[in-house]
Amino acid sequence: MNNEAEYEALLADLGLARAVRAKNLKVYGDSILVVAQVNGVFEAKDDTMDKYLRVVKGILTQFNEWYVEHIPREVNTKADALSQFPSSEIENYTRSIYLQVLKTPTIHVISLIVPVGVTSYWIDPIKTHIETGWLSDDAQEARKLSVRALRYSLIEGILYKRSFIIPCAKCIRPLEVEEALKESHKGIFGQHLGAGP
């Protein structure tokens, strides 16, 4: 379980590096196993570790140069401070800290295959960016997507637009509109007067 958390942290870091369009990357990690697997010293024999490794290797191919080095946990003070954060008093922090809560392991969320017959829709790039950190090669489009995605959250695989006034709004495709209208018309207190069957 700890190695899965280490891979999740590595994937989050790689996503940030891609978001700022880094070309060369030096990564420091305190997990001997993860560093050794990424560097090809150890094989990933466990199915879960193999899936994580394949996703990480796929992302690393997008950098011109990359280097992953092991550092002892006691030297990795920033990671140690962040690992203590969930059990700390949040009100003690005066600076902005952004948290991402993963409901599902990244390797279960990432899908490189689009089902046949599903057409692309405006929510797809936003969802893909949140899931994998993907950005367009066009710098202007990548920046627009990064900024736009900040207004959205992915909860159990469903994209929601955040709002300060109303609850999060579920983002749906055109084919889902009719079903959503039926659900909203029924309301929480039953079917409205004059509604159809």
Rank of each mutant, 00 (worst) to 15 (best):
residue 127 K to H: 10
residue 125 P to Y: 13
residue 65 E to L: 13
residue 138 D to L: 11
residue 133 G to Y: 00
residue 125 P to S: 13
residue 122 W to H: 10
residue 63 F to S: 03
residue 52 Y to H: 03
residue 153 S to D: 14
residue 112 L to G: 07
residue 129 H to E: 02
residue 95 R to A: 15
residue 71 I to Y: 03
residue 62 Q to R: 12
residue 130 I to R: 02
residue 114 V to C: 14
residue 88 S to L: 02
residue 55 V to S: 01
residue 62 Q to Y: 13
residue 98 Y to V: 10
residue 89 E to R: 04
residue 123 I to D: 08
residue 97 I to G: 06
residue 96 S to N: 05
residue 127 K to M: 06
residue 130 I to N: 00
residue 83 S to E: 04
residue 111 S to A: 08
residue 58 G to I: 02
residue 67 Y to C: 15
residue 121 Y to C: 11
residue 129 H to M: 06
residue 65 E to K: 15
residue 104 T to R: 09
residue 103 K to T: 07
residue 80 D to F: 10
residue 71 I to V: 05
residue 95 R to P: 10
residue 49 M to N: 11
residue 144 K to I: 10
residue 105 P to Y: 03
residue 87 S to A: 14
residue 146 S to W: 01
residue 119 T to A: 13
residue 99 L to F: 06
residue 134 W to I: 04
residue 64 N to Y: 05
residue 53 L to G: 00
residue 156 E to T: 15
residue 88 S to R: 14
residue 94 T to W: 10
residue 121 Y to K: 03
residue 75 V to T: 04
residue 133 G to N: 01
residue 108 H to C: 10
residue 83 S to L: 01
residue 92 N to D: 04
residue 66 W to E: 00
residue 71 I to E: 05
residue 91 E to D: 12
residue 124 D to I: 09
residue 90 I to P: 03
residue 125 P to F: 12
residue 108 H to D: 11
residue 132 T to M: 07
residue 80 D to E: 14
residue 139 A to K: 05
residue 76 N to L: 05
residue 100 Q to F: 04
residue 128 T to L: 14
residue 93 Y to V: 11
residue 56 V to K: 00
residue 94 T to D: 05
residue 108 H to W: 11
residue 130 I to F: 01
residue 142 A to T: 03
residue 143 R to G: 02
residue 148 R to C: 06
residue 92 N to W: 07
residue 54 R to L: 12
residue 96 S to T: 14
residue 153 S to R: 15
residue 93 Y to C: 04
residue 70 H to L: 12
residue 94 T to S: 10
residue 128 T to S: 12
residue 102 L to W: 03
residue 120 S to E: 11
residue 85 F to N: 02
residue 154 L to K: 03
residue 141 E to A: 04
